[in-house]
Amino acid sequence: MTILVTGATGNIGRHVVDRLVGAGQRVRAMTRDPRAARLADGVEAVYGDFERPETWADALDGVERVHLFPFAYVAAGAGDGAGFVEQAVRAGVHRFVVHSAAAAGFAPGDEPGDRTLSPLRRHLAEERQAHRGLELMVEATGAEWTHVRPGLLAVNALRWAERIRAGQAVREPYGAAGYPLVHEADVAEVAVAALVGDSHVGAAYTITGPAKVSQAEQVRAIGAAIGEEIRFEELTPEEAREQWIHDGCPEETADWLIGLLAAAVEGPELLPPSTAFHRITGRSPRSFTRWALDHAADFRPPARTEEAA
């Protein structure tokens, strides 16, 4: 059996590839640059691009199961209109594990294009529409499916890496705001369980970290992981918005990011911790402290990184 991993060089995709190899599976990785993929020994890296339908046949040849990266929805109307998912089924794929998002599980309500909504509500409606749309596309094929819906990923903290490596303070609004950030390895572990086992067919799992971790707590955890004290400077929402836009962030994106943080000061009501990972694996999700230790090299100043090596 050959399993195709799309999005194979991403934060989650690399973990999926490694876990499948560790489980003794035959793995093909679809990537836009196979020569630069740097994947595990034994992985067949092939060129494939969701926006280029002529590349799909080689990637799908002989494949029975697919880890489906969310960018596939772009391909839904590409080429002859069949889309990547439909072509995969015609090629013999009979199971999809969809890398979706927690927003796909939100109850329908707001319309994505409603300009009377707050930027945050409009963004969440757009997220739900895109990810649930891909899930429904897969379900409509009649193939087996599992939807893996990660919440906010801990890897988003890498946006601070350059400042921390330079010895600068992390500057953000709403230091007390936080969500149950999920380690990418947890998402991959659930995806692999669904790819190789049969007990998850037809299930949709929202995967989060074990508990809310505030922005200030994230910075402290990263500091502890690299043995450095990192300063956290709290900005006002207005200061943060101005800085983000100055740095090139679109105004609407800045506005919904402010809203996302403001909604999580008292608690992560938008996305509370889920029990799915524990139910599937029998273990608690990896903590943000664990994530910070796993990514310490990304945050260490260059001299410290050389010493650690």
Rank of each mutant, 00 (worst) to 15 (best):
T2M: 12
T6R: 00
T9C: 01
G10E: 01
I12S: 09
D18V: 00
R19T: 14
L20A: 04
R28A: 03
T31S: 10
A37Y: 07
R38T: 13
L39E: 11
A40M: 07
D41W: 02
G42L: 04
V43S: 02
V43L: 01
E44Q: 08
E44D: 15
A45F: 01
A45Q: 00
D49C: 01
F50W: 06
R52G: 00
P53G: 00
E54G: 08
A59P: 11
L60V: 08
G62V: 10
G62Y: 06
V66H: 10
A72G: 09
V74N: 14
A76W: 07
A78K: 14
A78T: 07
D80T: 06
D80S: 07
G81Y: 11
G83L: 05
F84V: 01
A88Q: 03
V93W: 01
H94T: 11
R95Q: 02
F96T: 09
S100R: 03
S100C: 05
S100K: 06
A103K: 06
A104R: 05
A104K: 06
P108I: 08
P108R: 04
D110S: 10
G113H: 05
R115I: 13
T116F: 06
L120V: 02
R121T: 10
L134Y: 04
E135Q: 08
L136S: 10
M137R: 15
V138G: 05
E139A: 08
T141Y: 00
T141D: 00
G142I: 09
W145D: 03
V148W: 06
L158C: 06
A161T: 06
E162R: 15
R163L: 08
R165M: 01
R165H: 03
A166E: 12
A166R: 13
Q168K: 14
V170W: 02
P173Q: 13
Y179A: 14
E184K: 09
E184N: 12
E184L: 05
A191H: 07
A194E: 10
L195F: 11
V196A: 03
S199E: 15
S199V: 15
A203C: 11
Y205K: 05
K212N: 09
S214Q: 07
S214T: 15
A216C: 05
V219A: 03
R220W: 05
A221R: 12
A221L: 15
I222N: 08
A224V: 04
A224S: 12
I230A: 03
I230E: 03
F232C: 01
E234N: 04
L235M: 09
R241F: 09
E242C: 01
W244T: 13
I245H: 05
I245F: 03
P250G: 08
E251W: 01
E251K: 10
I258E: 13
G259L: 02
G259E: 09
A262W: 01
L270Q: 12
S274H: 10
S274P: 02
A276F: 09
F277T: 00
H278S: 13
H278V: 12
I280D: 11
S284N: 15
P285T: 09
R286Y: 07
R286A: 14
L293E: 15
D294I: 07
A297H: 11
R300E: 13
A303T: 13
R304H: 14
T305N: 10
E306L: 15
E306K: 12
